[in-house]
């Protein structure tokens, strides 16, 4: 049948290094120097799903990202996985967008490509992690949408089976295209990229669209078009004046038992090991 699939991909600072992030107390900006930019990890699961659907039904896998121009390098990895082409939506005017303004620009990009059957996103980004872009993208496009998809079978345009996770359980759904859905990590294991894949990626179409290229109403764009506005920003002090103890395993167990008892847990006496004398005679 041939499906045109867009996967929304967000370049983010690598979450492995978030312990190193600080806030500049004067400028009130996030200091993330030296932290490499990667594709949001969950978005690779979305790319993988799109590639699987393409393998089954034919069609095209298109990556789309709203990001600064230097994102081009990062997005190559998605093409190396096997996606066919990339659209980067980049303009100073997009800066400071909240989720409503981000999803608006993405939706207009998707509409400009046209005839899209399915849009996939990750459930949440590693940095902002609001988990809101997917649902709002569905709303701007006027497509039905689901969040937290852990399983999905596309049998035909009019026959899709979906499973979403909820607390302590799941829901099952039937649906029809077009649709937007946010995939969860559990859905699959993303493929690795090969050297060949990387070489091919560099030759694949890469289009950059700015504000002017898209049919945008400025009222909904960037920081000005965002209903939410940032106020103060800070890095919480989570530290405790803790003691670091180099103790034997027996002493460790003793300490834990003592604290359990202090919290009302009734534990009977136990053997706490022997200590040998240290006199050399």
């Amino acid at each position: 049948m041939g499906l045109n699939i867009v996967v929304c991909v967000k370049p983010i600072p690598d979450p492995k290094y978030y312990n190193e992030i600080t806030i500049d107390p004067v400028t009130k900006t996030v200091k993330r120097q030296g932290i490499p930019t990667i594709i949001n990890p969950i978005d690779k699961h979305a790319i993988e799903k799109a590639l699987k659907i393409k393998e089954q039904h034919g069609g095209k896998v298109i990556l789309m990202s709203m990001a600064p121009p230097d994102a081009q390098e990062t997005l190559l990895e998605g093409l190396a996985m096997g996606a066919d082409e990339t659209y980067l939506l980049s303009d100073r005017k997009f800066a400071g967008a909240d989720t409503l303004a981000t999803s608006y620009v993405l939706a207009r990009g998707i509409q400009k490509i046209g005839e899209i059957d399915l849009v996939l996103t990750g459930t949440e980004s590693g940095d902002g992690a609001t988990a809101q872009v997917s649902s709002q993208l569905g709303e701007w496009l006027g497509f039905s949408h689901l969040w937290g998809v852990v399983n999905c079978e596309v049998k035909s345009q009019d026959d899709i089976y979906l499973k979403t996770k909820i607390e302590n359980g799941y829901m099952e759904w039937s649906g029809k295209l077009p649709m937007v859905f946010a995939v969860s990590r559990e859905i699959n294991t993303p493929r690795y990229t090969s050297i060949m894949g990387v070489m091919k990626a560099k030759k694949k179409p890469f289009t950059i669209w700015s504000f002017q290229d898209l049919d945008l109403d400025e009222v909904y764009v960037g920081l000005k078009g965002s209903p939410t506005q940032p106020g103060d920003i800070f890095s919480p002090d989570m530290g405790r004046k803790g003691e670091i103890l180099k103790i034997s395993k027996e002493e460790a167990v003793e300490l834990i038992i003592e604290k359990l008892r202090a919290n009302g847990i009734n534990i009977e006496s136990f053997f706490s090991g022997c200590v040998r004398g240290e006199r050399n005679e």
């Binding site: 909240d98 989720t99 409503l100 609001t130 937290g148 979403t164 607390e167």
Partner: peptide, 23 residues
């Protein structure tokens, strides 16, 4: 911000064009 609420809040917000402070 349950699995379903995390979807419902931004969906409603997009319909009435307002903001959601998340999580």
């Amino acid at each position: 911000a349950s699995a379903l609420g995390s979807q419902l809040a931004p969906t409603v917000a997009a319909k009435v064009k307002t903001g959601v402070a998340a999580h």
